[in-house]
């Protein structure tokens, strides 16, 4: 493999990995606070992408305005979803709320088929984001440059929110013990809503970035990315925001390098992602950056 080829593969890997990381942050954040694996995360991602699409095509907004509109809309959408599908089950066994999440996922997918139609749509990508830039013989589009920067910026903002702000403190309190937090006058409903709002906002951002890079929308587009970022979050240690970013990049690098090194096996890319998950879980059940927590009884 020549050097420039290797660099091209690394660039490809980083740009794919940063997308996974962006999605995994939202996943892991909701889990970290609520101990809920939100299976509908991938579908909120899809909703975000569609809202931005209609913002650009139907309301003829400029792309950045459509992006803002979509993340605000989707954040509220996530809050409503939590109120309807998860809140009534907050005191039920974990398994019920997980089933409810799977149900919400199917509901959103079917609704999307009804409302948006089953045929795929092409996302109108602004020229600024789809320009090809060259570094020697290595090439990439501008959006692939923006996504990693964006992911790191979000990582820092989120770590700041969780660790330094008052609402972040409340989040951590809820995460440790909901009942005790309520006794300490923490408004649990508000904290959960904010968490879901942020999680959904991140999903929408991920969805829009994804569809700018891969300009194709369909009602099931969130399924595979949802699974992949779940894997990324688990590999990194679910609940740990920095771990999710690490897991996302790792997954992207392994997927790309697997094809680069073993081109004849390129059809088994996804299988390798899942094998990686199994190996990590066998060796380190809590994920790379996860801490072992005693299960509360």
């Amino acid at each position: 493999m020549t050097l420039s080829l290797l660099f091209q593969h690394i660039v490809n890997a980083l740009s794919l990995g940063s997308l996974y990381a962006l999605l995994a942050i939202g996943y892991t954040m909701v889990y970290g606070i609520l101990r809920l694996i939100n299976f509908a995360h991938g579908d909120i991602f899809m909703v975000g992408a569609y809202v931005a699409f209609y913002g650009i095509t139907l309301m003829s907004l400029p792309w950045w305005a459509a992006l803002l509109f979509s993340i605000v809309f989707t954040a509220f959408f996530g809050i409503v979803l939590e109120r309807v599908a998860y809140k009534p089950l907050r005191d039920s066994p974990r398994i019920s709320i997980m089933i409810s999440a799977i149900g919400a996922s199917f509901l959103l997918e079917s609704l999307a088929v009804l409302i948006f139609g089953g045929r795929p749509k092409g996302m109108p990508v602004p020229d600024v984001l789809s320009k090809v830039v060259y570094f020697g013989s290595v090439s990439m589009i501008t959006i692939s440059l923006i996504i990693p920067l964006f992911t790191f910026a979000l990582l820092i903002v989120l770590l700041w929110i969780v660790n330094k702000t008052k609402i972040g403190m409340a989040m951590r309190a809820v995460s440790t013990d909901i009942e005790a937090a309520r006794l300490m006058a923490v408004d649990v409903n508000k904290v959960v809503s904010v968490t879901f709002g942020i999680g959904s906002l991140l999903a929408a951002l991920g969805g829009i970035m994804w569809s700018f890079k891969y300009p194709q929308l369909n009602p099931l587009m969130g399924m595979m990315p949802g699974l992949k970022c779940f894997i990324a979050a688990v590999i990194g240690g679910i609940g740990n925001i920095a771990g999710a970013v690490l897991g996302g990049f790792l997954l992207g690098i392994i997927e790309i390098m697997m094809v680069a090194l073993l081109p004849t096996l390129s059809g088994y890319r996804d299988a390798f992602a899942f094998i990686l998950l199994i190996i990590v879980l066998l060796i380190k059940p809590t994920g790379l950056l996860g801490k072992r927590q005693a299960e509360k009884v």
Binding site: T2, L5, Q8, H9, N12, A13, S15, L16, W210, Y214, Q216, L220, M224, E255, I256, M257, M258, V259, A260, P263, T264, L265, S266, G267, R269, D270
Partner: peptide
Amino acid sequence: LAELNYNTGDTDFSAQLTEIKK
């Protein structure tokens, strides 16, 4: 010169295409 594979529903083909370019 080469045969590369992908799966239905895949969205990222950069690795396969970089191989092809080679």
